[in-house]
Amino acid sequence: MKNELPHDLVRTLLAVVDEGTFDAAAAVLHVTPSAVSQRVKALEQRAGRVLLTRTRPVRATESGQVVVRYARQLARLEGDARAALGMDGESDAGTAAAPTWLAIAVNADSLATWFVPALSALTQDARIHLDLRREDEAHTTELLREGEVLAAVTSSPDPVAGCSVRPLGAMRYLPVATPAFAARWLTGEPGDWAPRAPVVCFDRRDDLQDAFAREATGGRPASRLRHYVPSSEGFAQAVTAGLGWGLVPEEEASAGLRSGALVAVLPDRTFDVPLFWQQWRLDSPALAVVAEAVASAAAHSLRNPPTA
């Protein structure tokens, strides 16, 4: 029927998006590039809209992202069905079965602190393999929306279409700097120094320091004199080196505060970022195992769970 989305066509579109080119997708699917092109065109005709932008790499259009999400859900459900039927054991040739891949978006600070220890619960199941995508917690839902990942640690309690939301807890950040930097730049009220003191930011999408400054000053953002350090460990090192003040996760800042290498910029102020687990609404045993492991680790590592 014209309105159906044949699985072979849907899988072909996903292969093109994942591989980036028609030629690469053809190699993975063991067909010719011409066959891949014909399948994509046939799917676009059935959908009545363009699904791919023919660029390098190929990108899914907004409509294409809907089909990509559907394709990933199909692949995940098929994998779970094969496992439930005992079809994921060794093949007839004696080779190990393909692993269960789960793509998950996680913010850098969670990766550097509590998230990776949560994965220790998965060591008993060698079939589950993770593909972690690092992204700012305010933007991880974009990867969910685009169909790039099945789940995400995010600061957004608003569910992406087709996803469920579970509160994890709040990550606490401490505004810190070196004693020498604080003595030079951070004297007086926050409204005096925040607009002029150099600040360390994760990247150009990082609004954490600005949000803290606005809260502390009644609306004024942090200084435009800033250093961008797109690594959680590097960020903390940049602050410890005296390049600027910054918000460092409590777990990472504690040692520096105890040793005297760091001082609290405003001792009576902290900044909490609520985190949530969003995942596709799939009856997937593998995804459920990961979700429980993440929630358990978050309950022990994060502040009181927020309300969704």
Rank of each mutant, 00 (worst) to 15 (best):
A105T: 10
F271R: 00
V165G: 03
T141H: 15
P57C: 07
L5Y: 13
V176I: 05
R82D: 12
A264W: 03
D88V: 15
T240V: 11
L5V: 09
S284T: 06
E215N: 02
L5E: 13
T32F: 06
A24R: 11
D207N: 04
H129K: 15
M87L: 15
A25M: 07
G246N: 08
T32M: 06
L168T: 01
A27N: 10
V199K: 02
R11P: 00
P190F: 07
P167S: 05
A238W: 08
A93L: 13
H227S: 14
R220L: 14
P267C: 05
R59Q: 13
H300W: 14
R184P: 01
E148W: 14
T12C: 10
A264N: 11
L130Y: 06
L51C: 11
H227N: 10
T55F: 08
L77R: 14
V36E: 08
W245C: 03
R226L: 09
L14T: 07
T187P: 06
L150K: 10
P221D: 00
A24I: 04
S296A: 15
T100N: 06
V28C: 09
F271M: 00
A291F: 05
S110A: 15
P175C: 01
H227F: 15
T100D: 12
L174W: 03
T113M: 04
V68D: 02
H139Q: 15
K41A: 13
